[in-house]
Nucleic acid binder design. Structure first.
Length: 994
RNA sequence: GCCUCGGUGGCGGAAUUGGUAGACGCGCCGGAUUCAAAAUCCGGUUCUGCAAGGAGUGUGGGUUCGAUUCCCACCCGAGGUACCA
């Protein structure tokens, strides 16, 4: 009987579903193992071959751990809130819930087809009200908490209120807004309820604040930096302005240090840790206060606070630079400089932040006319503004030390500002000197002669003495904006009384998304929820009621923003532990049993989004006693991206220009006469690369033009330029393994190519190929369905692993799949006759145990590609040995089962078992079968292997040397020379030097 | 610029602590089987050379009896990040 994978795979997928083979129990005597893949966003395009890569790896590991006797939790779900469904809704009016449901169905079919050992009874969907009830609940917990720096953890806001009542806020050390005023207990009790609420918002871990955003009035929405191109929206090219908006923020900055420290306790890839470290961006330095010298006739005394990592260079500060948006700019600018400054500020406002950051070459700025007093020298220091200083970072102001910072140096050079040298023995005529190690400070009063570290300490000390500064640790990390002006996200459980946010009580959650007519922002610029007519909170009934009932006495308006994409994914890994619990986010028993994720596999693109926010939420949940671990995943692996091999047809852009005739300049009529470019001719890629062939094309192209056009091919009169080509993506399904285009298929593909003409080479049209990210818009997506249909899921699983190391990105190429498929056929054949009683030969046992050892090591090291090779070698050897012994074939089936579970189950059944192979024990490796008595010694000369010699393994060093020297091939190599030295490493190698 | 990862046959890749470079698979070449094809099986396949031999893991150095592996400098590619003070 042949290997009928279609029948086998369908049979076992059904069996696993019916028997709930992979259902995990929340209590077990066996040790627990939690294996998790990052859950997908169910897009309309379905799964492509890149998605399953990580899932297969996790699945292999999960199945392996089951064989090893673990109680394995291996769940899957959907990150089902998101923008694509909403955009589709805007275009078609279709409710996002409906498209999402359809997409999930398709994902489920595709996932089921691949034979994953998921416990589907635990599926979660972030857009399910039963799930987002708990997302809202966590939000409320954050709202009801503040960060106590003394205990270094989150605490209840009620406790903070009692501190305020007792002693005011002077002694409170909390992470709070910068503008938090100091107040006494008496002040607090005298404050109105609204003032109290306002003050508490400055402490809450989620709070309302005015945040600067990229607002696009035409789209009625906020755009991300990468949605803006050249100052206008990527979609539609509309104007984008920077605007302050009141939005929910998460006080993640409270956790900056702990997020940094926690990285040392988890086994995550170094690049990922590095990018989180950079994102948090801790820098040690000092803050320094510069007093602004009042302009003539002014009374006011302004101060500028700067943060610097180099307080040791303070005597080198020859100017200050403020961000153009800095609050003081308007106040300190002198009348003479007003125009220049305003022009510059205006110009800066038009540039996106990304623009300003990316452009290192253009140096621009303006002088405010004002001066600050240097804290130590008391000399006046000119105050400039420059767009290289960002308002959002630090204090939005820097003390500029041109001799020690290249950007300051370039700025000073450009504007002819003096560059005082404060480094001993350093030439700064060409560039700034930023090497801290070699620094010896000079021309700096009390800092003279000090090295970097000592100078920093001393400078901070002196600043503190003056009362004009202190040592400070600064973080680049910003509080995370948590509001989105979208429909398809979690509603905030928030209503407003007198403009102050109030939380809906836990027992009334979830607050479900309202129905709306349109998914666009309202005409007045409110988020889509502003379209809802039943979206007000009745505190008496504790329910959502019509907006018309809003009286601000018992019925209040609800929040119109929704939560961002990362809200739902920030605690889903915990929810899987107890996914159907309606009483709590999860039971204590469940999380005390599963604790944390043992293995988490997913893409590195989530390094600073999902993975940083999740760690933040986990630490918070830990602080408030809801999670037992303050890191949620012990080990994390980033699977590499599977890239696509895009195919391009090359459109000739034939520029035809009339040759200039002497004495007759081209008039407009002649230019108009020049024929437009031929837009419909495609040239084979191999012709493009060779200039000589281009000429051949030029001579052979005339037949492609109509008679009318042919005149333009007259070389005497016209210049024809073939150099311009356009690459156009074509669907990879029209291209075969030799890069040859199916011309008829291409012509039918899209109407504009119906009459396309092709310049072929040897009768073929060859496409250009390039490796790119796999994406629908690049027409390079390869779908797993077709591969499953043709070769089966087991082949696909093996092949995805066989492609290369898990972490590395690699291009998809279906060509090699026949290799793993024929391996499965050979494996199948091996089980044609199973000999119950036959004793395995020594050879059989050696092959088997070699394989057990290697495969076990490979799985533990996540080196799945090499185990596939090992299986191939094993099956090749056993086939050659004509092995039929059950004692060999049975453990082999278990070894293969994590990788190719369907065929393994079927073989298991053939071996006489009536239960699933999933729980069978992993075979035990026994060294004794691998012990050899002799070894093929490589005999090398000066490190180069020349031949091998079989010698007993128990032979001593001297005997080996004697045997090797006596060999005639040794003598032939030496050609009469006497070796200088003979290195013998018993069991390894012989090296003859000389 | 900085950080991280990578560079090995025609291709994907292998090489456990420094010890036989190119396992395994694809492709290609040759052969068997077949009326033919598919499928299957056998042999070959880093380069150079008729061969003996020689060269060879991005480049140049170094350490070592011996380097894909360790060290130094550089080149190239990918990803991330940024006037971060």
């Amino acid at each position: 009987m042949n290997y009928n994978f279609r029948e086998i795979e369908a049979k076992w997928q059904k069996y696993w579903a019916n028997n709930e083979t992979f259902k995990a129990s929340n209590n077990s005597d066996r040790p627990k193992f939690y294996a998790l893949s990052m859950f997908p966003y169910p897009s309309g395009a379905g799964l492509h071959v890149g998605h399953p890569l990580g899932y297969i790896a996790t699945d292999i590991y999960a199945r392996y751990k089951r064989h090893k006797g673990f109680n394995v939790l291996h769940p899957m779900g959907y990150d089902s809130f998101g923008l694509p469904a909403e955009q589709y809704a805007i275009q078609t009016g279709q409710h996002p819930a409906i498209t999402t449901e359809t997409n999930i169905k398709r994902y489920r079919e595709q996932l089921d087809q691949l034979g994953f050992s998921f416990d589907w009874s635990r599926e979660v969907r972030t857009s399910d009200p039963k799930y987002y009830k708990w997302t809202q609940w966590v939000f409320i917990q954050l709202f009801n908490s503040w960060y106590n720096k003394k205990s270094d953890k989150a605490e209840a806001i009620a406790d903070l209120v009692s501190i305020f009542e007792r002693e005011g806020n002077a002694a409170v050390e909390a992470t709070s807004d910068d503008d938090t005023p100091t107040f006494s207990a008496e002040d607090w009790t005298s404050f109105s309820e609204k003032t109290k609420q306002e003050l508490l918002l400055k402490y809450r871990l989620t709070y309302l604040a005015d945040t600067e955003v990229n607002w696009c009035p035409a789209l009625g929405t906020v755009l991300a930096n990468d949605e803006i191109v050249n100052g206008v929206s990527e979609r539609g090219g509309h104007l984008v302005i920077r605007k302050k908006m009141t939005q929910w923020s998460m006080r993640i900055t409270a956790y900056a240090q702990r997020l940094l420290d926690g990285l040392d306790t988890i086994d995550w890839p170094l690049p990922l840790k590095d990018s989180q470290t950079n994102w948090i961006g801790r820098s040690e330095g000092a803050s320094a206060i510069f007093n602004v010298i009042p302009n003539k006739g002014e009374e006011s005394q302004h101060q500028i606070e700067v943060f610097t990592t180099r307080p040791d260079t303070i005597f080198g500060a020859s100017f200050m630079t403020l961000a153009p948006e800095h609050d003081l700019v308007a106040q300190i600018t002198t009348p003479e400089q007003k125009e220049a400054v305003e022009t510059y500020v205006e110009a800066t406002a038009k540039r996106s932040e990304r623009d300003r950051m990316a452009d290192v070459k253009t140096i621009s700025g303006a002088f405010t006319g004002a001066y600050a007093e240097h804290p130590f020298t008391k000399e006046p220091v000119p105050i400039w503004i420059g767009d290289y200083v960002l308002a959002g970072y630090g204090t939005g102001a820097v003390m500029s030390v041109p001799c020690g910072d290249q950007r300051d140096y370039d700025f000073a050079k450009h504007f002819n500002i003096p560059i005082p040298n404060i480094f001993e023995g350093i030439d700064i005529s060409e560039e700034a000197f930023a090497d801290k190690e070699k620094t010896i400070i000079a021309n700096s009063d009390f800092l003279d002669g000090l090295p970097y570290k000592k100078a920093v300490k001393r400078a901070i000390f002196e600043l503190e003495q003056l009362g004009q500064g202190e040592g400070k640790i600064n973080y680049r990390l910003r509080d995370a904006v948590f509001s989105r002006q979208r429909y398809w996200g979690e509603p905030f459980p928030v209503y407003y009384v007198d403009g102050m946010p109030q939380m809906i009580a836990d027992e009334h959650l979830p607050l479900e998304l309202p129905e709306v007519e349109k998914y666009l922002p309202t005409e007045t610029g409110e988020p889509p929820l502003g379209n809802a007519t039943v979206w007000a909170w009745d505190i008496k009934q504790s329910s959502v009621v019509s907006n018309q009932l809003i009286d601000n006495k018992t019925v209040f308006p609800l929040e119109l923003n929704t939560m961002p994409g990362w809200a739902g994914s920030s605690q889903y890994f915990n929810r899987y532990m107890d996914p159907h619990n309606d009483e709590a986010i999860y039971s204590k028993e469940a999380i005390d049993y599963w604790e944390d994720v043992d293995l988490y596999i997913g893409g590195s693109e989530h390094a600073t989004g999902h993975l940083l926010y999740s760690r933040f939420w986990q630490k918070f949940l830990f602080d408030v006693g809801i999670a037992p671990k303050d890191e949620f995943a012990k080990k994390l692996i980033n699977q590499g991206m599977i890239t696509g091999t895009s195919a391009f047809v090359i459109r000739l852009v034939v520029n035809i220009t009339k040759k200039w005739e002497e004495g007759k300049p081209l008039d407009n009529r002649t230019i108009a006469q020049i024929k437009p470019i031929d837009r419909n001719t495609f040239i084979s890629n191999d012709l493009i690369t060779v200039p000589i062939k281009i000429r051949a094309v030029r001579e052979n192209i005339s037949h492609l033009f109509s008679d009318e056009d042919r005149v333009y091919l007259d070389k005497e009169k016209y210049n024809i330029n073939f150099n311009d080509i356009e690459l156009i993506h074509t669907d990879v399904s029209f291209v075969n393994a030799s890069d040859e285009l199916d011309i008829e298929g291409f012509k039918k593909w899209q109407p504009e190519y119906k009459d396309a003409k092709f310049i072929k080479s040897d009768g073929k049209y060859i496409v250009r190929r390039e490796i790119e990210k796999m994406s629908k818009s690049k027409y390079n997506v390869v779908n797993p369905d077709a591969i499953c249909e043709e070769y089966g899921a087991d082949s696909l699983r093996l092949y995805e692993m066989f492609l290369g190391p898990l972490e590395q990105s690699k291009p998809w190429n279906t060509a090699g799949i026949t290799g793993v498929h024929s391996f499965l056929k050979k494996l199948w054949k091996l089980y044609t006759t199973i000999d119950e009683g036959s004793e395995p030969s020594a050879e059989n046992l050696k092959t088997l145990h070699k394989t057990i050892k290697k495969v076990e090591e490979d799985i533990e090291n996540f080196s799945f590609n090499t185990s596939v090779s090992t299986f191939m070698i094993c099956v090749n050897e056993l086939t050659a040995q004509k092995c039929t012994s059950k004692a060999i074939l049975e453990p082999l089936a278990i070894l293969v089962s994590p990788y190719a579970p369907h065929i393994a189950e079927e073989l298991w059944e053939k071996l006489g078992y009536s239960t699933s192979i999933a729980e069978a024990s992993f075979p035990k490796f026994e060294e004794k079968y691998l012990i050899e008595s002799s070894k093929e010694y490589p005999i090398s000369f000066n490190g180069k292997m020349r031949f091998t010699m079989e010698l007993p393994l128990d032979m001593g060093k001297d005997d080996i040397e004697a045997a090797v020297m006596a060999n005639e091939r040794t003598q032939a190599q030496l050609q009469g020379r006497t070796p200088k030295k003979v290195i013998v490493v018993p069991g390894k190698i012989v090296n003859i030097v000389g």
